[in-house]
Design a protein around this nucleic acid. Structure first.
Lengths: 188, 188
DNA sequence: CTCGTATTGGCACCAGGTATTAGAATGAGA
DNA sequence: TCTCATTCTAATACCTGGTGCCAATACGAG
């Protein structure tokens, strides 16, 4: 008995739907040259939900991630914040942050965490980075959890500039250090 | 004639669906206390597509954005690259890069472009940012196209460190300037 | 030839709609 | 008061993309 065709078809079907989850069963019949019932039995065996469920799942995922993705807003999760004094944030290095061959985080992600925190700790909503002097002390690697600690050194509420020092650690090793000068809307 | 209820309902309906696009017409009848036909007429007037279309649109959006987001690899498009000499990249400031209320780009995005370019121009694959001294000269705004130009000042092929200077312009105005020290795998 | 698996077909049913036509409620103006 | 327009509700037919179930067929192995 030629068992292969079925398994091959299952593989093909999985692959097709992975590439294009928008395919209906009817379209799949054309691509796999079997009846629509066969497609449905196959989906059943492979536990692949129907088109509408697939779309719903994707929509839910994107909806959730839009909500949890002010990734662009603040890089890292703020753990503690004392305005005009100090702040702590956590940022975990994942696949998309590293050079694929070395597993070392690209510098700008580590910088982004520190910069976000430096701006957040001032929290004047019109706080902008004016300049920074930074040092990458040792590379941060895939999977490592970076804890950034920011300290406002000279708030200079009137002067329109604040100096913020940020230290980033993995465990008790320092990986990054930076001095930021932040412009702020005077007052506050 | 009490015209308000209708417009109010339209507003409410828009708002409800904005908050939760997963609502069916039937669920909306419960929330708005009108018949399902009214809901459908309302959607028609407001040009709001049916549930399935909404889910499909969301799924498509998320599907596309996953595809077009190696944003994390190199920030900005490389326009020109002369290894160990110079490089140019283009980065357009869009919604997700700016503070929503001021339309000013967050510093780390501008930094990321410069940092990516500084590393790319060395292109030793084991090139890492060691330190940087940076200045944000004027804010970059939504829609602006940032052109970053990098110059390798001291390649020091043997020393394991290279100095790279980056200038970022919008038109002929400089918005950012940075001096990067890049570690490189000795030799080349 | 018979058994078992794989495949196909047909039918009823469902959710969540569209499209259309008809009727009821309401109020405003002549 | 009658009439008319707007708004709302109701009813029906139809569509897509399925599920669930049962029966019929194909086909190869023992």
């Amino acid at each position: 008995m030629e068992r292969l065709p079925k398994r091959q078809r299952h593989q093909q079907l999985s692959k097709l739907l992975e590439e294009n989850p928008f395919l209906t069963d009817r379209e799949l019949t054309r691509l796999l040259k079997v009846s629509i019932q066969t497609i449905r039995l196959d989906r059943l065996e492979l536990a692949i939900p129907e088109l509408r469920e697939r779309l719903k799942l994707m929509a839910e995922r994107s909806y959730d991630s839009v909500r949890s993705l002010p990734l662009h807003e603040v890089i890292g999760d703020i753990l503690d914040l004392q305005l005009d004094k100090s702040g702590i944030s956590l940022f975990e290095i994942s696949e998309e942050h590293v050079f694929s061959r070395s597993g070392i985080a690209r510098g700008h992600h580590v910088f982004a965490q520190a910069n976000s925190l430096a701006v957040a700790v001032i929290n004047d909503e019109i706080a902008l980075t004016a300049s920074a002097d930074i040092r990458f002390i040792r590379p941060a690697r895939l999977g490592e959890k970076c804890i950034a600690k920011a300290f406002v050194r000279s708030s200079g509420g009137q002067k329109g500039k604040a100096k913020v020092e940020v230290f980033t650690y993995v465990g008790d090793e320092m990986v990054f250090q930076g001095n930021f000068i932040i412009y702020r809307s005077a007052g506050e």
